[in-house]
Simulated assay, not measured.
Amino acid sequence: MNKNSKKICLISSSGGHLEQIKQLSEVINSYECFYVVTRTKATEAMKEKRYIVNDLIRTNKFVLFMRMLKMMIEQLGIFLKERPDVIITTGAGVAIPMCIIGKFFRKKVIYIESFARINTPNKTGLLIYKFADLFIIQWEELEKYYPKAIYGGGIY
């Protein structure tokens, strides 16, 4: 299949967030995509084009700020190298810098709230909701937290 000219950055933490983003097969098969993921045995074994980045560690506010700054610099380098048109994420905290960078460069940001979030939002979602171009929830119960979100149902 011919890939469309748009380039997509798929960024997530490992585990369930990554498994959810991999469910976007129509996007993955239609566009040039690359992954930005945190280091695990599974992500090191990925065959797809990917960048392994540091994860967010939340110990105290100072350490959190310093880690976020380091992540921002690391992900800015990836962004400038790849020049994605769209950033799609399922979270978690690792996605915050790339989404901010994307908005700064006027790229589209799409956030898909985790399937595991049925009744309560997560902190990453609450932050990115404020500036995402498209915000998708997988459970109708979350509409009270994200009134402008699109209910897309489960991606599994």
Rank of each mutant, 00 (worst) to 15 (best):
E141A: 11
R50I: 00
V86H: 06
I73K: 14
G154H: 09
Y111V: 07
N29G: 12
S13C: 06
L24C: 08
L142N: 01
F105H: 05
D85Q: 06
A149H: 00
F105I: 07
L56S: 03
I21P: 06
L127G: 08
G152Q: 01
S14H: 11
R106I: 00
K107N: 05
I100M: 14
R106H: 09
L76V: 08
A149N: 01
E113K: 02
Y35R: 13
F131Y: 15
N119I: 02
N29K: 14
A92N: 06
V86I: 15
Y129L: 07
G15V: 06
A45P: 00
F115I: 12
V36C: 10
M66W: 14
K148R: 13
K47D: 02
T40N: 03
N60D: 14
K108D: 01
K7V: 15
N54P: 00
G153F: 04
C9A: 15
G15K: 11
T120S: 12
I155T: 10
L127D: 11
G93R: 09
L64M: 12
H17M: 03
R67S: 10
T89V: 04
Y111T: 05
E143Q: 09
Q75Y: 05
I136S: 01
V94N: 02
A42Y: 10
Y111M: 10
E140C: 00
Y156R: 09
M1P: 13
K130W: 11
F115V: 08
T43W: 01
G16I: 07
I118L: 03
F115Q: 05
G154Q: 11
K7A: 12
K107C: 04
I88G: 03
V109G: 06
S5E: 15
I8L: 07
I8C: 08
E19V: 00
Y129A: 10
T120V: 09
F131H: 13
I11K: 00
T40C: 01
N29W: 09
I110F: 03
W139R: 02
V27D: 04
M68H: 12
K123A: 14
S13D: 05
N2G: 13
K61F: 02
A45W: 00
C9H: 04
C33H: 06
T90N: 07
K148S: 14
Q75K: 11
G102N: 09
L10K: 11
V86G: 05
L142C: 02
S25L: 09
N119S: 10
Y129C: 07
S30Q: 13
Q75G: 06
R50M: 00
Y145L: 02
F65L: 15
G93Q: 02
H17I: 04
D85V: 05
K108G: 00
I137M: 03
T43C: 04
E140T: 02
T43V: 04
C9L: 14
N29Y: 09
A116N: 09
I57E: 12
Y35T: 09
